[in-house]
Design a protein around this nucleic acid. Structure first.
Length: 303
DNA sequence: AAGGAAATCAACCGCTTCCGA
DNA sequence: ATCGGAAGCGGTTGATTTCCT
């Protein structure tokens, strides 16, 4: 006996969202905030299942999302994080707050996979960035990963304690992930819709120009806010620690999207991960293929 | 210009995880 | 401790667009 569907299939609309549906969804979220997805279809009258609403919001309508044209730095970051975390797209996306997990996943599957293949020839890359010979140690690696994540979570909650966070730059950086500050963006978006001419079917409906402007604004803001984050030039083996450092706690905290759960490693956790990876490499010497992967299989280190 | 192939990406599906009762 | 429902996630699909012949 299978699990019942998340929603009643009959009377539920599927396929591309119309601009009108987008407006309804955005208006509702503007008023109530994201969450309680199961109530969204009932309260809005949208003939969509809750999942579809959530997906539409997180992958497309959520403010601060940058679309198309991944920068070289983003590309490198994705490759690096994919090597570290595997296909944990949500985790990877948490380090690239302007990008959705879906976007990153698509970009990986359509662009980066091919790029890596080209660079490596037929062999080399395999799922999760582990060569087949690493499979034995992977369980061990994951256990350690979990421990590190827990440690970093503890560190994060410490860092988030009121006395420590008050007056920090966190509040200044929050807008990119925070919902509350997103209302302005939504308002602008809606404004765009008001004066829009009908778009091609399946488009989100936001006025292209105003959205572009908005994206550029967001992008500019993001690049300014996260300049330290993207300050690294390359991820060769000698400066991967710089990467960890560049993901300062503050920056990493700001990267946390409020709409995303705190399930994934943060920068601090990444630091721990990387530290462990390199420590482990040092401890095991030739036995640790992780370093080999990082240095030889991960083409980013060849950039 | 037309038709087919390839690429892209939004959206769906189904499994897993989380959380409250 | 367990159960059930909701949310989250990754894999996959399919419609659309772009490129090539």
């Amino acid at each position: 006996m299978g699990r019942p569907p998340c929603c009643d299939k009959s009377g539920v609309k599927k396929g591309p969202w119309t601009p009108e549906e987008d407006i309804i969804l955005v208006s509702y979220i503007q008023e109530h905030g994201p969450g309680n997805w199961r109530d969204v279809p009932t309260n809005t009258g949208l003939l969509r299942c809750s999942k579809s609403c959530r997906l539409r919001w997180t992958n497309y309508l959520r403010p601060g999302i940058k679309r198309g044209n991944f920068t070289e730095q983003e590309e490198k970051m994705i490759i690096h994080l994919q090597a570290l975390l595997g296909n944990r797209w949500a985790a990877i996306a948490s380090y690239l707050p302007q990008r959705t997990d879906n976007d990153i996943k698509n970009y990986w599957n359509t662009h980066l996979k091919k790029k890596l293949k080209k660079l490596h020839g037929s062999g080399g890359y395999c799922r999760h960035g582990f060569s087949s010979s690493d499979q034995i140690s992977r369980g061990q690696w994951e256990r350690k990963l979990q421990t590190d994540i827990n440690m970093a979570k503890q560190a994060l909650s410490d860092a988030l304690s009121p006395e420590k966070s008050s007056g920090s730059s966190l509040t200044e950086l929050k807008p990119f992930g925070g919902y509350a500050s997103s209302t302005e963006n939504i308002a602008k978006m809606l404004k765009g819709w008001m004066r829009k001419t009908p778009l091609k079917p399946g488009s989100t409906g936001a006025d292209d120009h105003s959205r572009k402007e908005e994206e550029e604004r967001c992008s500019k803001g993001m690049s300014e806010a996260f300049e330290p984050l993207f300050a690294f030039e390359s991820f060769d083996s000698s400066n991967s620690n710089d990467f960890s450092q560049s993901m300062s706690t503050e920056a990493s905290l700001s990267l946390q999207d409020e709409t995303k759960p705190d399930l994934v490693p943060h920068a601090g956790q990444l630091s721990l991960l990387e530290k462990w990876l390199f420590d482990d490499a040092a401890n095991h010497g030739k036995d640790c293929q992780l370093t080999d992967i990082t240095l030889a299989e991960n083409p980013m280190f060849l950039f």
